[in-house]
Computed example of a mutant assay.
Amino acid sequence: MKIAIITGASSGMGKEFVKQIASSEVLDEIWVIARREDRLNEMRQEISPKVRPVALDLLKKDSIHAIKQLLEEEKPEVKILVNSAGFGKYGTYRDLSDDEIDNMVDLNCKTLIHMTYACLPYMKEKDRIIMLGSSSAFQPLPEFNLYASTKVFVVHFSRALNIELKNRGISVTSVCPGYVRTEFFDVAKDTKNPDTCKNFKPMYEPEDVIKKALKDSVKGKDMSVLGLHVKLLRLTSKLLPHSFIMKSWMKVK
Rank of each mutant, 00 (worst) to 15 (best):
A66N: 12
S63P: 14
M104E: 12
P53F: 07
D62F: 07
E77I: 10
A66Y: 13
E73A: 13
H65A: 13
R52L: 14
S48A: 05
Y90C: 06
K61L: 13
R94D: 11
D99K: 07
R94T: 09
S97Q: 09
L70E: 12
D95I: 07
L59W: 04
G91M: 02
K50S: 14
C109A: 10
L71N: 07
A66Q: 15
V105T: 10
S48N: 12
R52K: 15
T92I: 04
V82N: 00
V105E: 03
G86Y: 00
D57I: 02
I80M: 03
M104L: 11
E72T: 12
L107Q: 02
L107F: 03
L71R: 08
F87V: 01
N83L: 05
A55I: 08
L70H: 09
G86D: 05
L96D: 04
I64W: 05
D99P: 05
A55D: 01
K75Y: 02
I67F: 01
D106W: 05
I67Y: 01
D62P: 13
S97I: 05
L71G: 03
D62S: 15
P76I: 14
K50M: 12
L70Q: 14
Y90T: 09
P49W: 02
E74Y: 06
H65D: 09
S97V: 04
G91A: 04
D95S: 07
A55C: 07
I101V: 15
K50D: 01
D102S: 12
I101M: 10
K61R: 15
E77D: 04
E72L: 13
V82K: 00
K68A: 10
D102I: 11
L70Y: 05
E100S: 10
I80N: 04
A66G: 09
I67A: 03
E72W: 05
S84R: 00
E77N: 11
D57W: 03
L81D: 00
K75F: 03
P53L: 11
M104T: 14
T92S: 15
Y93N: 07
I64V: 14
N83F: 00
V51R: 02
D57H: 13
